[in-house]
Amino acid sequence: MSDHIDVHKVARLGALAIGADEVGAVGQKLNAIVGLFDDLAAINTDGIEPMAHPLDQVQRLRVDVVIEKDIHQYVQQIAPRVEAGLYLVPKVIE
């Protein structure tokens, strides 16, 4: 059974800040979730085609026509920092 979730790695991948005091509790919860997957993995699925989607339907297609308008002034009202039309974020590359 998978009971060795690396909480630090998961936190890094998920870009989550998990305090040292929380690691144990979060680890337990995650392991409980993984336990459910272990139960699922125990079922014999030989010869069953993986299901990409629960609905037995196919992708609908949209015609290639521009229907969207410029909404940047509207949506940028909720951005913490904007300059020259760009969203500003903490520097990604030093």
Partner: peptide, 10 residues
């Protein structure tokens, strides 16, 4: 990455 002090523009 160039034009903004301490920030990146997206």
């Amino acid at each position: 990455h160039e034009d903004f002090e301490g920030a990146s523009g997206i």
